[in-house]
């Protein structure tokens, strides 16, 4: 196989990727070489947010077409070098790449991409340019708790800590290396993956439910955390850091301060939480809580 094609369309899940055979790879190069119009624009690619964001094509030196890197979006064929890009105003190269796919697309995905490719290239470029100029305002986080831990992922994302401490460890800022479970330290571990079971288990450990995280917490009064549930399947915790933003540690993976969509978390209730669709409660924890 000669080259890899990736359709950039998803946000939270992997993009569809497939291979071109030798004949297809050569045809792609032929199509590119037939484009005469040049442009100083680069393929916008990931800029612009959600939905269709073009194709990327890659091959290495052993390929029939040699080492190649192409990004194609809104008619712009970007070879990734300092040369000018090519402008495929008819968007035939993008349409052709879509037809080479050997993976199954959900009908909605194919319809979306097809509709995007039907937009004339000049119009598609104007839309992208508007989004580049008008940037979203920065997220606002307001510190609330004097005791809140600083966001310092280096304390958690090391081989001796990361695999052995989960979201509950992280929210409580305690590295027990036991993959702590709500209630286990006090013989009152949850029995179901529901708010009604996990929240009281956390209360048995010393956490206290609260309606919101709007009240300032003085020194000695702890910091805010939040409990969410993947219904009947799992739970997850977030914590509010000293800077007022929220962070989390999904299981044995790295601690981070962005949500499933890569955005700063100003409130777990409104964050992208993947399958953890149920928001249970804000709670307050502190340094005297015991977890295991």
């Amino acid at each position: 196989m000669s080259a890899t094609v990736q359709l950039n369309v998803f946000s939270g899940r992997p993009n569809p990727t497939w291979l071109l055979n030798d004949e297809q790879a050569r045809e792609l190069l032929d199509r590119v070489h037939q484009v005469e119009t040049k442009t100083p624009l680069k393929a916008a690619g990931s800029v612009g947010g959600l939905g269709y964001r073009g194709f990327t094509v890659a091959s290495d030196a052993k390929s029939t077409i040699g080492e190649t890197r192409l990004a194609v979006h809104a008619g712009v064929v970007d070879t990734g070098r300092t040369d000018l890009s090519l402008f495929d105003e008819s968007r035939e190269i993008e349409s052709w790449l879509l037809e080479t796919a050997t993976v199954q697309f959900d009908k909605g995905v194919r319809e979306h991409v097809t509709s995007m490719l039907a937009v004339p290239a000049q119009e598609a470029l104007r839309d992208l340019t508007d989004r580049l100029i008008v940037l979203p305002p920065p997220s606002k986080c307001t510190p609330k708790a004097a005791d809140a831990p600083a966001y310092n992922p280096g304390l958690w994302n090391i081989p001796t800590v990361q695999p052995y401490n989960n979201c509950y460890n992280y929210a409580n800022d305690q590295r027990t290396n036991t993959f702590a479970q709500p209630g286990r330290a006090h013989g009152k571990m949850y029995t179901k993956l529901t708010c009604a079971s996990v929240q009281p288990a956390a209360q048995a450990d010393g956490l206290v439910p609260t309606a919101s995280f709007s009240t300032k917490l003085a020194a000695g009064k702890g910091w805010y955390v939040a409990l969410v549930i993947w219904p009947n399947t799992d739970y997850h915790w977030y914590r509010q850091d000293a800077n007022g933003c929220w962070s989390h540690k999904p299981g044995g993976t790295a601690a981070r301060n962005v949500d499933n969509g890569g955005h700063t978390i100003t409130d777990p209730k409104t964050a992208n939480r993947g399958p953890y669709t149920t928001f249970c409660s804000y709670m307050i924890t502190n340094r005297h809580v015991v977890i295991k």
């Binding site: 196989m1 000669s2 080259a3 899940r13 890659a58 993947g274």
Partner: peptide, 18 residues
Amino acid sequence: LSRAQGAREPTPPDLGYR
């Protein structure tokens, strides 16, 4: 399976299937 030929691996999400 074939070698990935320079393609970029996707980054798993924080929450859910990784």
